[in-house]
């Protein structure tokens, strides 16, 4: 992930459709948050565009880019380039290679870079971690997919005493939808921060109850009838925990906070590793015992939790390496634009 190319399409259909009832799903099965993740990722692209164009106007950037391009046979190069960009034939992008950040004009049909220009220090500083955040969106989507698979194990039976915990998810989801649909940046930020607070509160409560319920579920002294009831609660809590973590990822993506997003993943990863995957006295992990106590042969808790943790681990390792590389490159002067 040290080198990447992010496209900045001319027109991004960023407006969230608040009338889309799929956003407000209450079927108590699995809550797909993929569309929200997509909106959040588009908002990062918008932020990058704003950040670049606040330092240099779009026209000036295009002019500078095409001065170094291959389009010298056209009479009015600027108009030609703008036309191509407007039609979507060409696309502006940000490229990072060997520690340096460039503005790029790319041919969207052939995938070839037509021209590139080193961005100056100020623009790069203003962009912050947004390009990195945008570059990891694919991996985040893959983690979200894995997390959602864990949710498919869930057989939803709502329990009165747990409803306050589960309600946190619906509250935060609504805050996130309202935030993403807001046009005012200050309101958007405030709503997203509120969503993160509710999410973290819910995550903490769910982790604690999951820990206690898991231990009770794998205790042989727990009667079969009680075990069945606890299993439902356990699966339910896991489902809501996963969805709430995903919501936090959406919120931090929309806020453009890569490190906070990594902290959310780190917390979730540590919980799975230390509470569910760590071996007990009998060299068996809680997750293994949950599968073992699960009625039937289809327990996939270990497999799925391991998949999620390995993906998160890879992403976090990449982020760590990237930060180290970034720090060493800060000392190197960038060419002026």
């Amino acid at each position: 992930m040290e080198d990447y190319l992010i496209e900045l399409p001319n027109k991004t259909s960023f407006n969230i459709d608040v009338t889309d009832s799929a956003l407000y799903n209450y079927d108590f099965n699995s809550y797909s948050l993929q569309s929200l993740q997509e909106y959040a990722s588009l908002s990062v692209v918008e932020k990058m565009k704003k950040s670049i164009y606040s330092n240099i106007s779009k026209v000036a950037l295009i002019d500078k880019l095409i001065q170094q391009g291959e389009t010298k046979y056209v009479a009015d190069v600027s108009d030609y380039a703008k036309e191509k960009l407007d039609s979507g034939e060409w696309v502006l992008g940000i490229r990072k290679k060997t520690g340096e950040t460039y503005a790029v004009i790319k041919d969207s049909l052939t995938g070839r870079n037509k021209s590139f220009l080193t961005l100056n220090k100020e623009v790069v500083k203003d962009l912050g971690t947004l390009p990195e955040l945008s570059a990891i969106q694919g991996q985040l989507a893959s983690i979200s997919e894995q997390i959602e698979q864990l949710n498919h194990l869930v057989q939803r039976v709502e329990q009165g005493q747990y409803n306050d915990r589960y309600a946190g998810f619906f509250s935060a989801r609504q805050l996130t939808i309202e935030a993403l649909s807001s046009n005012d940046e200050a309101i958007k930020k405030e709503l997203l921060i509120s969503a993160v607070k509710v999410n973290n509160d819910t995550i903490g409560k769910l982790m604690l109850s999951l820990h206690q319920d898991a231990l009770e579920f794998i205790d042989i002294k727990t009667k079969r009838k009680d075990a069945k009831r606890i299993e439902n609660i356990l699966q339910n809590s896991m489902g809501y925990l996963n969805s709430t973590v995903q919501l936090n990822l959406v919120a931090y993506t929309a806020l453009g906070e890569e490190q906070s997003l990594m902290a959310t993943l780190g917390n979730y990863n540590s919980f799975i590793e230390q509470v569910l995957l760590q071996s007990t006295n009998d060299e068996r992990s809680v997750a293994w015992l949950i599968d073992n106590a699960y009625e039937g042969n289809n327990g996939r808790f270990v497999e799925l939790t391991k998949n999620v943790t390995s993906k998160i681990y890879n992403l976090m390792e990449e982020s760590k390496t990237k930060r180290m590389v970034g720090e060493s490159h800060e000392r190197i002067e960038n060419k002026e634009m």
Binding site: I218, I220, T222, K223, R224, A227, D282, R284, L289, D291, N292, A293, Y294, E295, N297, G299
Partner: peptide, 17 residues
Amino acid sequence: NKEVHRNKAQFCLEHDR
């Protein structure tokens, strides 16, 4: 098809329970 849940057990946790 499950393994026993403890070394000395004869059954998995589901069936032992």
